[in-house]
Nucleic acid binder design. Structure first.
Lengths: 253, 253
DNA sequence: TCTACTGGATGACGCTACGTCAACCGCAAG
DNA sequence: CTTGCGGTTGACGTAGCGTCATCCAGTAGA
């Protein structure tokens, strides 16, 4: 008692293409072929197909299903792995859903996805109130959106580059080079690029960079980053960055 | 102020292949090319890249991201759709996880994934106790596993074919054909195949089919399905199916 | 007997978002 | 002149089929 492709198709709801695919990859061979190469499946094949479809509905990849059916791997093991896999997927989706919700809420408040401020690298949560006072609520929220959107890797890289920069500044400060020296200007360029890597409007005007640099002197919390080897460190960094901005940046795009 | 591929790569954590891919599909063109075709990105491009990566982390497909960035579709709309999409995925994964758990538990109790009984089509939950009494707990649980593994479409098809069969039986019974008539035997063949579509061991022995057919008479709940047009309907179906089994089925594989 | 129709068959390409070679190229240092 | 860096352009592979385009065998109707 054998069944034709059409019969199997209408009984199981899969397509003939699927049957041929399973034949091609060796997952389910027809029990016999009739004239013209027509595929026919006997009960043995149908049982195998049922198992395939059952495991497929559980989300197992066909390769794993094949391994289970060939007895090369335990069904329990495969399903436990699948459970782990599903768990990871679930967590990822949950995280994405939260981010999507947050971003939608941010957008509804009339914000753009692009904007950002330049504070995140120092300490994101610690200075939020400060950001709010100086640049308004919008800036703080935009900042959050950007920072959250960066992802863990992005945040780590951003922080890492900041630390590397601080080390580089410490070094040129310790070497008593002038702020306009080549070594200091090289670090200044890196610093500006680092700022630019999180600067979210099209053009980063010279005045913005110079204003930020000025803050490194005016705000002791930022200054603290650059006075580790010398009290004059903050002024050094400020001068170096402002000089670089004067030399290489423009006010208008 | 432009950045090379290498700089963009190390700043964002994406690969150069990704940048070239985005170039190919027109999602992010480099702002300029230098000798040898080297790609360079200015701030405008980097801003765009930041938005791309943000939306990518939310799980949006690149095509949707492109549409948003080109202003062809609203960002809020796109994210709301994405939220729906994630919700559907979440539900699917949750369902799969439950099924995987159930199947693992069934397997731990020493059961095979394959087995099944022939009751599901009539009423799956209603007769569970009955199945348990006649065939033991194992059979009932295997039955659940199989039934659950079928999926909603599979269950609907299984039910639909049963209803079609019942209608076909009603018709031949009403036409006063003999159980051995060609018309009745045609329906019997369909009936046996329907049984076989859910029969999960390799061979369906003649005696099993005949036993099931006998139940259509002995068990009034099954009989009720075939006595809608005539009180003799159940006996008719039983005789027809048993005759078919005698003619076309074997005891051993 | 010719023809249309059924119910398939076999390629082959398409889809997502890149990873992963292989082969090559321009420029700079040794 | 060669080596190395930092890239470039193809081109194929991934999972699981969907979707053509083309062809073919057997059957029923004219």
């Amino acid at each position: 008692m054998e069944w034709s492709t059409h019969e199997v198709v209408s009984a199981t709801g899969i397509t003939s293409r699927t049957l041929r695919h399973y034949d091609q990859i060796g997952l389910l061979k027809p029990s016999s072929l009739s004239a013209g190469g027509l595929r026919h499946y006997n009960q043995l094949a149908l049982v195998r197909l049922q198992r395939i479809l059952l495991l497929r509905e559980l989300g197992l990849p066909l390769a794993d299903i094949a391994a289970v059916l060939e007895g090369q791997s335990s069904d329990i093991t495969a399903l436990q792995q699948q459970r782990q896999h599903l768990l990871r997927q679930k967590e990822r989706i949950d995280a994405q859903m939260r981010s999507v919700e947050d971003t939608i809420n941010a957008l509804r408040k009339g914000e753009t996805i692009m904007p950002k401020t330049m504070f995140e690298g120092f300490d994101h949560s610690q200075y939020e109130d400060e950001v709010r006072q100086r640049w308004g609520d919008d800036a703080a929220q935009r900042s959050n959106t950007w920072w959250d959107g960066l992802g863990e890797q992005g945040r780590q890289r951003f922080q890492q580059e900041l630390e590397d920069l601080n080390d580089a500044w410490d070094q040129v400060i310790a070497e008593c080079e002038a702020p306009v020296s080549e070594a200091a200007q090289d670090v200044a360029e890196r610093h500006v690029r680092w700022l630019g890597s999180s600067w979210q409007t099209a053009h980063m005007p010279r005045s913005a960079v110079k204003g930020i640099a000025q803050m490194y002197v005016d705000d002791e919390r930022f200054a603290a980053n650059y006075t580790r080897v010398s009290p004059a460190g903050a002024q050094f960094v400020c001068t170096a960055v402002q000089h670089y901005a004067d030399q290489h940046l423009t006010e208008e795009p």
